[in-house]
Simulated scan of single mutants.
Amino acid sequence: MPFLLIDFPSFNPIAVAIGPFAIRWYALAYIGGIVLGWLYARSLLKNERLWGGPAPISLVQIDDFILWVTLGIILGGRTGYVLFYNLPFFIEHPTAIFRLWEGGMSFHGGFLGCVIAAVWFARRNHIPILSLGDVATAVGPIGLFLGRIANFINGELWGRATDPSLPWAMIFPNDVAHLPRHPSQLYEAGMEGILLFTVLAVMIRFGALKRPGMVLGAFILIYGLTRIAGEQFREPDVQLGFLWGGLTMGMLLSIPMLIVGGILIVWAVRRGAPGPLEAIR
């Protein structure tokens, strides 16, 4: 083994076990992302300076929205994985759809689930859909970061094979090929989590929340770019492999995000900041 190769840390995917009851790091990542995101969302809504006046969403409403968005993440994420990544298997084994503890979630499906939850919740509560989307996506990178770290701890969704001389190349214990690979989960944690959160936070600091749809559009666009970049280093799912022209499913699903995100940003800029009465409608 090359002396520069890093041994994959020996992580236990189970964080806490009490008798037959076990909590996995992946579950904690979801819980932590939702809780920390909720706290950050509340801090954004409390800061009237960021909105140019009272926020168009109350703290009580964002508290209620947490349940809606949680269901959107879980139901959408699982549905997306079933449809986009492993449909033939689930057609043959339909009961496996409900075995969430075995893994299998799709970001793109989870995001669509969140969009549906946000639109439904906003209409029921008569609050601006785009502003709710801005808040939801501003906190999204927290969950993305924790989720990718959980992927790394589980030794799953690893990267493509690389030159053993790469100083941070790793051999993952579940890799039957036993090849040195990119720790692509950490790349994605940095891009989809830290980088995306930082860019959105800076935008918010300079008044992006005053233009409904701006943060939402930036999240969609930048996530699409970072996901496509990350897929350059990530091994495609074994049941799918590479698709048309060497593209992966993650790339194909991210391309529409570039278009939608760009449209939302242009629309938010052209529409301008709403007046005080419009902001609280």
Score class of each variant (00 low, 15 high):
200 L>P: 01
200 L>M: 09
201 A>E: 14
202 V>S: 05
202 V>C: 11
203 M>H: 00
203 M>V: 02
203 M>E: 03
203 M>Q: 04
204 I>N: 10
204 I>H: 11
204 I>D: 09
204 I>F: 06
205 R>W: 13
205 R>P: 08
206 F>V: 02
207 G>W: 11
207 G>D: 06
208 A>E: 01
209 L>C: 12
209 L>V: 07
209 L>I: 06
210 K>N: 04
212 P>R: 06
213 G>F: 09
213 G>A: 12
215 V>P: 03
215 V>C: 05
215 V>S: 09
218 A>E: 10
218 A>T: 15
218 A>V: 13
219 F>D: 06
219 F>E: 05
219 F>G: 05
220 I>S: 04
220 I>N: 03
221 L>I: 00
221 L>S: 03
222 I>T: 08
222 I>R: 03
222 I>M: 14
222 I>D: 01
222 I>W: 06
222 I>C: 06
223 Y>D: 02
223 Y>G: 04
223 Y>W: 08
223 Y>V: 03
223 Y>K: 05
225 L>T: 02
225 L>Y: 01
225 L>D: 03
225 L>P: 00
227 R>N: 05
228 I>S: 06
229 A>T: 12
229 A>M: 12
229 A>Y: 12
229 A>V: 14
230 G>A: 10
230 G>K: 05
231 E>W: 00
231 E>L: 02
231 E>S: 03
232 Q>A: 13
232 Q>E: 10
232 Q>F: 15
232 Q>L: 15
232 Q>M: 14
233 F>Y: 13
233 F>A: 06
234 R>A: 02
234 R>Y: 01
234 R>C: 00
234 R>L: 01
234 R>S: 01
235 E>H: 08
235 E>F: 07
235 E>K: 07
235 E>I: 06
236 P>F: 10
236 P>Y: 12
237 D>N: 07
237 D>V: 04
237 D>R: 07
238 V>F: 15
238 V>S: 13
238 V>H: 13
239 Q>E: 15
239 Q>A: 15
239 Q>N: 15
240 L>I: 15
240 L>K: 13
241 G>W: 14
241 G>Y: 14
242 F>V: 03
243 L>A: 07
243 L>Q: 10
243 L>E: 09
243 L>V: 11
243 L>Y: 12
244 W>D: 01
245 G>P: 08
245 G>W: 15
245 G>H: 09
246 G>T: 12
247 L>D: 03
248 T>I: 03
248 T>F: 04
248 T>P: 04
248 T>N: 02
248 T>Q: 00
